[in-house]
């Protein structure tokens, strides 16, 4: 059984929802990211989404773009991200790690090389923001062969017929983008999210996570009520951006604890 599946089963037995934080690898540097990964687990995270930095992140807002720019200023490459997971696995064999990024750095390394190395270092899922199902054929085959989950996005604009197409390919969990916009935008319409998650759940067999627009304890709590997992990215990356080397771990832990408490 995959680490992601196992994690969701455990959570559901305990009537808990998954907390999935997103941080960008190499922001502000790789050593800190490694420390932050453990801090995320220690403060109550269930799955870690690790961003692969890219120069032109069209689906991300200014906060995550700046995180990418900081990581790229330190020359963080996809190989570095894979090495980071390898180091994390030396101390943590339980927490699922999902890599999230854009197609080009993966194609530059080579889809097959990337997937083989991801499997080797212990990556559990991959989400490529600009690989909709239409364009993700080669990656999906490679992921499946290597028993890595294919995480897909669903959007408020996704038609019902398409949800069934995605359902046929999705493993691990699906990620519902809870608003029309880029990461870090505001104005979450909870009633709308609730309706859409119900609709998605009619077709998708894997758990449904909700992200984009979750900024505080109140939104996290509300979203946890109507989904299986809460994904929190921009707000956490802001915390990292505003911290210095001395307080970064404490700040991140404090923030994740407050969210954990709110959703339990």
């Amino acid at each position: 059984m995959s680490r992601i599946k196992k994690k969701f089963e455990e959570l559901s037995q305990n009537n808990r929802k998954a907390l999935i934080p997103f941080i960008t690898s190499g922001d502000p540097n790789l050593g800190t990211t490694l420390k932050l990964m453990s801090a995320l687990v220690d403060s109550g995270s269930d799955i870690i989404e690790l961003g692969i930095p890219f120069s032109d992140p069209i689906a991300d807002g200014p906060t995550i773009q700046r995180a990418s720019e900081r990581a790229l200023a330190g020359k963080t490459s996809l190989s570095d991200v894979l090495d980071l997971v390898k180091m994390f696995r030396e101390t943590d064999q339980e927490t699922p790690v999902v890599l999230m990024g854009y197609a080009n750095p993966i194609e530059a390394l080579g889809v097959d090389v990337f997937v083989a190395r991801a499997a080797e270092v212990g990556v559990d899922g991959v989400l490529v923001v600009d690989y909709p199902p239409e364009e993700s054929g080669a990656l999906n085959v490679a992921l499946q062969e290597n028993k890595i989950d294919s995480i897909f996005l669903l959007a408020p604009t996704t038609l019902e017929a398409r949800i069934t197409d995605v359902a046929a390919l999705a493993t691990g969990y699906v990620y519902y983008v809870s608003l029309k916009g880029v990461t870090g935008a505001g104005h979450l319409d909870l009633e709308d999210v609730s309706k859409r998650v119900e609709q998605i759940k009619r077709h998708v067999k894997v758990p449904v996570g909700v992200g984009f627009g979750i900024r505080d304890e109140a939104t996290a709590k509300a979203v946890a009520k109507l989904s299986d997992a809460v994904v929190i990215g921009s707000r956490l990356v802001e915390e990292i951006e505003q911290s210095d080397a001395k307080n970064i771990v404490t700040n991140v832990e404090g923030f994740i604890r407050s969210i954990r408490k709110a959703i339990d």
């Binding site: 239409e134 364009e135 959007a155």
Partner: peptide
């Protein structure tokens, strides 16, 4: 039909834009 010119072109966008 899918917007490809040989191996080039295509629809490499986030899900939000697919419907549009």
């Amino acid at each position: 039909q899918k917007g490809h010119f040989g191996p080039y072109g295509g629809v490499f966008v986030p899900e939000t834009l697919i419907h549009a």
